[in-house]
Amino acid sequence: MAIKDYLRERFFPHMWCPGCGHGTVLNGMLRAIENLALEKNDIVMVSGIGCSARITGYVDFHTLHTIHGRALAFATGVKMSRPDLNLIVPMGDGDALAIGGNHFIHAARRNIDITAIIMNNRIYGMTGGQFSPLTGYGKMATTAPYANIDHAFDTVSLAISAGATFVARTTTYHVKQLTDIIQKAIQHKGFSVVEVLTQCPTYFGRKNKEGGAVEMLENYKNSTTPVGSQAGQVNPDLIERGIFVEKQMPEYCSEYSKIIQKAVKRK
């Protein structure tokens, strides 16, 4: 199936700004799904609120556009009632780690078989460029006109400590890696977290004088390095990308079905 068969073409051109990285994430995600030859009817995509959350409107799967930060809670409900379906939850950085921070850590702790894609543009784009928990110290935002004094989460470390069994990071510059990682994340049995650094030229780029989409992508190329590379050891300022954790642990829905079996036997 060509990727355009997965799109709701009647809603195109999409509502994202020129050069917004979210479209590239949509592009890469659809290619991953195409490579896996998944049936449209076997995919449920759940999103919350924000620019990133609009992604569910453009794909021709079962889609839920839910409430801010609670996409993972809705997805947990869907997965527990229909464990045979593939659950994909694209979220923004604020949606996943501020408003939905608690849902995120507990979904990870339970190791429920959901693929969480965190599209990290380090800003609340839809509401006008307020700082998020991933904006980072010293960065500018509409609500931090004299620079932000909050320190950022490290999404990867947070996901690992919370118990996610597949944790990866990539960028919208590294599109082949993006598709490859999302593909592996969907195949992984357990809670998968994929952080994608995605450019917001309209707010983050403009406020922080990082230039337009092209310059921001050049920056992703120059400021990241593969996990465990020598360049990363020499220069710790480089952001590592790749797969950080990939391990097997008992999955939540499988464990739950065992409990049901036990309870039924006792009757």
Binding site: I3, K4, L7, F12, P13, H14, W16, G19, C20, G21, H22, G23, T24, L26, N27, G28, R31, T172, Y173, V175, K176, T179, A213, L217
Partner: peptide
């Protein structure tokens, strides 16, 4: 195909 893969508007094939 790098243009096709990177295009945020999914406009290139």
């Amino acid at each position: 195909r790098l243009c096709e893969l990177r295009c945020p508007d999914l406009a290139i094939e």
